[in-house]
Design a binder for these strands. Structure first.
Lengths: 164, 164
DNA sequence: TATTGTTATACTCTATAACTATA
DNA sequence: TATAGTTATAGAGTATAACAATA
């Protein structure tokens, strides 16, 4: 057993709690999103596209942590509703650059408005300041590990695909 | 459109980020847990049992947010490895009271030790203090919405099953 | 009759492999 | 030859329904 310096507190593990709480949110969100014709994964995809800007499908799949083959159907759904657009990259015509449409931005805002109640319920124990704190921490943690979006670097050779 | 007081900041949504980050953790955790013969869901189950104490299967399923039929197989796995025990409740012989064994406690600690590296990676952008802050917020949020464990109230009529 | 846990099974989701087109 | 995206499909995961034991 490695002896830790006394100054270091016992390393609390957030992993299980994250999974636990995320499941709570997901379950309740599905109910709220259903009338809007969205699933949680659609919302997450739209959110990532808004926060990181346009992206190729590969980069997007890596960032979302889903298989790129599954992203195809997911984007098909969103494209059928005109919430995203796929454009062929002029630099490399194999690539699709995925982008939010205006309708997508609006739909996302509408969904988030509807989801406020869910957050209120799941994060009921937290004060307003604590919720902002949580958001800030999550934002900071995810932004750092997300595959860099490729808005301005479409001609560059994509970062290593992040094997896990 | 409900007009919010100016003092209230725009309500940032943590839901999508939670899902996003949790997926990150889950993917990486699977790799680390595999040698221990555990899946993420086993770990979450053990964690909840430790943090909340013994519970009936129904309450546990509700807390975990999984279908009670699926919990059966999950507990079978853990019981086969002697990490948990199922005892019939003397008060109501229909009920199984689920409990961590000593081996379960040890295994959980071992798993958490192994998972430290994953957390280090996924939460790399956060300082030690921020990680503790995150843990604290998650703990507070989950504890409040968790179905109350039933250590001392096995004869009471269980809280409403939390329809979602 | 209602509830706890279990089993059986259908449904959904995810991942592996093969294909097309571009490079 | 290698890569981006797509399709087809098998394996894993999840939920619905019926059953046994107990209340």
């Amino acid at each position: 057993m490695a002896s830790l310096p006394v100054l270091n507190q016992p390393p609390h593990q957030s992993g299980a709690l994250l999974d636990h709480l995320a499941r709570r949110v997901r379950t309740r969100s599905e109910t709220v999103l259903a009338p809007l014709g969205l699933r949680t994964r659609h919302l997450v995809t739209l959110t990532v596209l808004r926060d990181h800007g346009s992206s190729t499908q590969q980069a997007l799949a890596a960032t979302l942590g889903i298989d790129s083959t599954n992203l195809v159907g997911l984007l098909n759904d969103l494209e059928a509703d005109h919430l995203i657009e796929r454009r062929r990259s002029p630099q490399d015509r194999r690539r699709h650059v995925v982008d939010l449409t205006d309708a997508g931005v609006k739909k996302l805002a509408k969904a988030e408005f509807a989801l406020a109640a869910v957050e209120d319920e799941v994060l009921a124990a937290l004060t307003f300041e604590q919720r902002e704190q949580l958001y800030s921490l999550l934002q900071q943690a995810t932004a750092a590990t997300d595959v860099v979006a490729c808005a301005g670097s479409e001609d560059e050779p994509m970062p290593p695909p992040m094997r896990s």
